[in-house]
């Protein structure tokens, strides 16, 4: 994929989500000047572990959490900075999101938004990162069960990989862009473990159609596909708040049926294009090149709309 500048405009909402820093995404996503950070950079809560590995630290450990307004509604937000340590989960990075989710029960925001941008667990703090991911998933279940939508936004440089992919799968609603990639093992990991015949990580078109935003939207792994602009993510996050499913037996039974049906229908597919063809897409090869508008038209034309129990 090539990343054309979305607009020559300098308005924050027109800026590329993919290119923006986590802080710029938050500033543009929320109503102007409403973001208030918890444990901000001046508090210097930095990783105690990275210096052992001779690695530089970041004031926010790559995770920015706080509150703000979305079209006037109070929301809690968490944003990962994918350029710092690949947005990976370490001890502090993970604990900030754990605390935010736990706080949601008392704060009762209109929604809790997670701006994913992560390669997974930070190896230098692997045990702490892995455990934090488990704590986050449990806290998301509790938060959702209390009726608070937890909404994930995926469109950053690092994608949403490893434990990040599992956390995303725990959210009530996911918004993804062309640049968003969502999976557990990344292409390089699969290639390293199984060889280039299994997955050629340099084949970018293969990566995108296997893990990219359009494929995830088509199979029902994501609920909305949006342009790579901060404004598009903002609009989709707003639209998601009233529709996000709660966390109960009915939702999970429906997800079980959805995932079983996917295995039965597509379990023998060799490539994403084959799945798209079976979904009723007439020209699967053209899908990667479609604009968001044309892609939405295509989604509307399919015999069945993806359903999103999760």
């Amino acid at each position: 994929m090539d990343w054309k500048p979305v607009a020559l405009s300098t308005a924050p909402l027109d800026q590329s989500w993919y290119e923006a820093s986590a802080r710029a995404r938050l500033a543009g996503l929320l109503d102007a000047d409403t973001f208030e950070e918890f444990i901000g950079p001046a508090q210097r809560m930095m990783s105690p572990h990275l210096p052992l590995f001779e690695l530089p630290r970041a004031f926010d450990d790559g995770m920015i959490v706080g509150r703000g307004r979305l079209d006037g509604r109070d929301v809690l937000v968490a944003a990962q900075e994918g350029r710092f340590m690949g947005g990976a989960f370490g001890e502090i990075h993970g604990a900030k999101l754990v605390g935010l989710l736990r706080a949601a029960l008392a704060v009762k925001p209109a929604a809790l938004l997670i701006l994913f941008d992560t390669g997974g667990v930070r190896l230098q703090e692997a045990n702490a990162g892995e455990t934090a991911i488990a704590e986050i998933m449990r806290a998301i279940a509790v938060t959702r069960a209390a009726g608070i939508p937890v909404i994930g936004l995926i469109g950053g440089r690092a994608g949403c990989y490893g434990g990040g992919g599992l956390i995303a799968g725990t959210c009530a609603h996911l918004v993804i862009s062309e640049g968003g990639r969502l999976s557990v093992s990344g292409p390089e990991v699969i290639e390293t473990n199984r060889g280039a015949e299994e997955f050629d990580s340099r084949d970018r078109a293969l990566v995108w159609r296997t893990m990219g935003g359009k494929h995830r939207r088509l199979i029902g792994a994501a609920d909305a596909f949006v342009d790579d602009t901060i404004g598009a993510f903002r609009a989709a996050a707003l639209a998601a708040i009233p529709t996000a499913p709660t966390f109960d037996l009915a939702s999970l039974e429906a997800e079980q049926a959805r995932l079983e049906a996917r295995l039965a229908r597509f379990g023998d597919a060799q490539d994403a294009t084959e799945i798209w063809g079976r979904l009723g897409v007439n020209d699967p090869a053209a899908v990667p090149g479609l604009t968001t508008e044309a892609f939405d038209t295509l989604l509307d034309s399919l015999p069945e709309r993806p359903h999103h129990a999760r």
């Binding site: 820093s21 950079p41 001046a42 530089p56 630290r57 970041a58 004031f59 900075e81 350029r83 710092f84």
Partner: peptide
């Protein structure tokens, strides 16, 4: 009172 800019990454830095 305070501001932050930049990101800690290869070839980059953050300034508080």
């Amino acid at each position: 009172a305070s501001a932050i800019t930049g990101v800690v990454a290869s070839g980059n830095l953050e300034v508080l």
